[in-house]
Amino acid sequence: MEKVYVTFDPRSKLCTILFASLLLMFPIPFQAEILFVTLMYILFILNGSLKKGTIFYGIFWLLVLGDHLMFPFIDHSIVAFFDFLFVGNRRMLPTIMAAAFAMNRTKISEWIAALKKCHVPFGLIIPLTVLFRFFPILLQDFRSIRNAMKYRGIAISTVDLFIHPLQTMEYIIVPILMSAENTSLDLSSAALVRGLANPKAHTSVYEIRFNVQDYILIGSLILCGIVGRLM
């Protein structure tokens, strides 16, 4: 049975990323931070990613617990360092959650169509298109290299990669760097061949428009901002 989930317009997801970035740049009350992270957890559930949302939400509360346990002993330098890591990662987590939510169940073609509808210059759309498609291919190349290494009995475990850094550089970093240039050139050529640089109006098979859930999402973000300012 196919899972039923709520879809959101890429532009409303982009608003979520921008709002999370503002939360990272400006100090906000802890209650407002909890409110936004809870909202992101609900969005993950609605978007059909309960497991991913639960992992992020659990990490957030583990970071909160770590900060709560270490704060009374903040006078010690080592404890202060680890408490700084807990707080810093907790502050960055909402932005990571927003980015993961934005990329979840949203195809690259939908992002391109949304950026075009926002009248983003083609000089920016083409690099972003190449960037969006570059990292999945890079990850696929890394997996292929790791499978080949394991098949040959080289660095079978992840720990071996750190124990033998020179070997890791020889068998992983060097091949990836060699293929990265060719991959970027191929993706740039493919983007130009498909007419992304054509200044005329483009058509898309994806219907990009705001629905009820998108207005509710943007309204919830505005409400979170207002509540954060009042706290």
Rank of each mutant, 00 (worst) to 15 (best):
S12T: 02
C224W: 10
L23A: 06
T54M: 04
I137R: 09
L46G: 01
H68K: 13
L115P: 00
I137T: 14
D214M: 00
F101L: 15
A99T: 14
L35K: 09
N89A: 12
L221I: 02
G195Q: 08
V120K: 02
L39A: 01
S21T: 00
R229T: 03
L35V: 02
I59D: 11
I59W: 03
I74G: 07
Y41G: 01
Y171M: 12
G219R: 04
L35Y: 08
A155H: 07
L177W: 06
M178N: 06
Y215I: 00
F8R: 03
D214N: 02
D75A: 07
F84I: 08
V87D: 08
T106S: 12
T95H: 04
I45L: 15
D214K: 07
K200P: 00
A80E: 15
V4S: 07
R133K: 15
L177S: 05
A32E: 15
L166M: 12
F81S: 08
N198G: 10
I59L: 10
V120R: 08
L18Q: 06
N211R: 15
I108T: 13
K51P: 00
D9K: 03
M169T: 07
E2N: 12
A99E: 14
K200Q: 15
M169H: 03
F60G: 05
Q167A: 10
A148I: 02
L22Y: 00
V37Q: 02
T106L: 10
S179K: 11
I176R: 06
Q213D: 06
E33C: 04
K3D: 12
T168L: 03
T95C: 01
L139M: 08
I112W: 05
D9I: 02
E110C: 05
E33Q: 12
V227I: 14
N211F: 09
D160T: 12
L185Y: 05
